[in-house]
Design a protein around this nucleic acid. Structure first.
Length: 257
DNA sequence: TAATCGTGGGC
DNA sequence: TGCCCAAGATT
């Protein structure tokens, strides 16, 4: 849930999920559409599908218990390098290298002297991060929590609070006078008129409905027939939408809407 | 590897 | 006000 999504927005949804599905087996027993529905407006709804698939895999391959090692976690749907490392160390105490957007920004500033990290993690960057992790697993875990929190609360993207920073005295970026980002402008994500936008609109209609939705209802949501069909097809291909008989659509396995 | 994939709050 | 970006993963 936290992937590319602010913590504050995740919290209420996360709590409701854990109330409703306390164990992986509870979620795995549901049709995937229930997960998509309970995802609400968190965004990137394929994550809901993958979280459900991860629950299914945990039941099928791990006797219903979340695996405790980074390597095993990496095999789960929707779990990549960051999530596997974070869960392995924060939940299970394994010594890992946790590199999220906060860690990347902190290290870019403190070590490299740049305002922002590169668009995607570089080999050198990951090596730097790995080299800073303490040897002792418990210390490594504390280190990762600390660097992430520093990035989230103090060394923020927009208005960093250097005056409150415990490592201000050794921060290369601050010592260099906090130079602004130079190089090619960082690419913003286009939005208006994109497939992403329309997919969101279509899925929201299905999520908010109390019963399967007719094709006509979906057609009313966009005049662009080509794009509309492409988006509907892609939602079906992703497994986020299930076509039913009678030219109707619903969240997968969720006939009640 | 670069492109794709949602949403909403803060500045 | 629009723009930026948020505990990334996948193909």
């Amino acid at each position: 849930m936290l992937q590319q999504t602010p913590v504050a927005r995740v919290l209420p949804v996360w709590q409701e999920w854990l109330r409703r599905w306390p164990a992986p087996a509870d979620l795995a027993a549901e049709p995937p559409g229930e997960a998509v529905h309970a995802w609400g407006r968190l965004g990137y709804p394929r994550r809901a599908l993958r979280l459900h698939a991860a629950a299914v895999a945990i039941v099928a391959d791990h006797e219903g218990a979340v695996p405790s090692t980074e390597a095993e976690l990496l095999t789960l749907p929707g779990v990549g390098t960051y999530t596997a490392a974070a869960v392995a160390t924060f939940a299970f105490g394994e010594r890992t290298t946790v590199v999220d957007t906060n860690v990347r920004r902190v290290l870019a500033r403190v070590v490299e002297g740049r305002e922002y990290a590169a668009p995607s993690p570089t080999r050198a960057e990951l090596d730097v991060a790995a080299g800073l992790v303490p040897e002792h697993p418990a210390s490594a875990r504390t280190w990762s929590v600390a660097v992430m929190e520093l990035g989230a609360l103090v060394c923020t993207a927009r208005a960093p609070r250097c005056e409150d920073c415990p490592v201000a005295s050794l921060c290369a970026w601050r010592l260099a006078g906090r130079p602004a980002h130079d190089g090619p402008p960082r690419r913003g994500q286009a939005w208006e008129g994109t497939d992403r936008q329309l997919r969101g609109i279509l899925l929201a209609a299905l999520r908010d409905a109390n019963s399967p939705v007719s094709r006509g209802t979906l057609e009313a949501l966009s005049d662009n027939e080509i794009q509309r069909e492409r988006c509907l097809d892609s939602l079906v291909a992703d497994g986020l939408v299930e076509p039913l008989d009678g030219d109707r659509f619903a969240l997968p396995g969720r006939r009640a809407g």
